[in-house]
């Protein structure tokens, strides 16, 4: 076969492969692009309470700036994010270390440790709603049995954010632990042997070797949790619906209510696109950090 013929055959094969792959590629791109483009378009529309639609230009975005509920929602979202992420990273690393060193721990105990994140968040929310009920729940019963005063938990404007952060951390700390455990198992044993020969204490070993080597893994876990935490919805919707008052009204909850309860789909789209931009920003920042700590 001549070179020209071979090239033609190769080109034809490439075309055939492209043709075969095209439907899947077009479908996937359309499935991703359509909702995004549609939401961007909706963000430029305004809907009356009766659902009547008209073009609004940038009005929805300028309304964000003067909307006190938006700024409050942003504050709640960031407060929950920072608190939950801190708790989940600290306890996730701790749990991973426990599971890594307790090699004789039976499999069933290990499974139990990591089981909460396999539970649907709605089920977790319902379960904690019952446990934390100030009148009928087990949490206050235990506090009083220990001689401590009962708490209003989710019904207190000042406690609702820490309480929701605790519920989310109960569910997702094991997930962080699982990622970190994977990182721990991949660390080179040689550096630990060298540290042992040099007489490094367990704390110094953790501080100077384990933690720096684990940083890329920890940042990966932080990225994955950031995406979820900034979109915090299900547990709040089940437990408080943004209350008491608007004390736990995250941007996602606020956007949902504006869209699906008050029918202002245009403003809700603007809210959700702003939230998406915040999530992208956080992911980009963490990606840069991951690049900086890679080894």
């Amino acid at each position: 076969m001549s070179d020209t013929a071979a090239t033609l055959t190769q080109d034809r094969q490439k075309l055939e492969m492209a043709a075969l792959a095209a439907p899947a590629v077009v479908f996937t791109v359309a499935m991703i692009a359509f909702p995004v483009v549609y939401t961007i378009w909706l963000g430029f529309q305004t809907f009356s309470s009766a659902g009547k639609q008209s073009f609004a230009g940038l009005a929805n975005y300028s309304k964000l700036i003067s909307d006190a509920e938006f700024w409050h929602g942003l504050w709640v979202t960031i407060a929950l994010y920072v608190l939950s992420l801190t708790l989940q990273l600290v306890f996730g690393i701790w749990l991973a270390l426990v599971l890594f060193h307790a090699k004789r721990l039976p499999g069933i105990v290990r499974s139990l440790f990591i089981s909460p994140f396999m539970m649907p968040p709605v089920v977790a929310g319902m379960m904690w709603l019952v446990i934390l009920d100030p009148s009928l729940g087990a949490a206050n019963y235990i506090l009083q049995w220990l001689g401590l005063p009962p708490s209003d938990w989710l019904a207190s404007p000042s406690l609702v954010i820490p309480t929701v952060a605790l519920i989310d951390s109960w569910q997702w700390t094991p997930y962080v632990a699982l990622i970190v455990l994977g990182g721990l198992q991949s660390l080179p044993p040689s550096v630990y042997e060298a540290a042992q020969i040099d007489g490094a204490s367990p704390f110094k070993t953790f501080q100077r070797i384990t933690l720096p080597l684990l940083l890329p893994t920890i940042v990966t876990a932080a990225i994955l949790r950031s995406v979820d935490l900034l979109r915090f919805f299900d547990i709040i919707y089940i437990t408080t619906q943004g209350g008491p008052g608007n004390a736990s009204n995250t941007l996602n909850i606020y956007g949902f209510r504006v869209g699906f309860e008050f029918f202002n789909i245009g403003y809700a789209s603007a809210l959700m696109l702003t939230l998406t931009a915040i999530v992208f920003g956080a992911v980009l920042a963490f990606n840069r950090l991951r690049g900086a700590v890679a080894w």
Partner: peptide
């Protein structure tokens, strides 16, 4: 009312 009544609807 009960403590936490601000979260009370028909279920509670």
């Amino acid at each position: 009312g009960p403590p936490g009544v601000v979260n009370y609807s028909f279920q509670q």
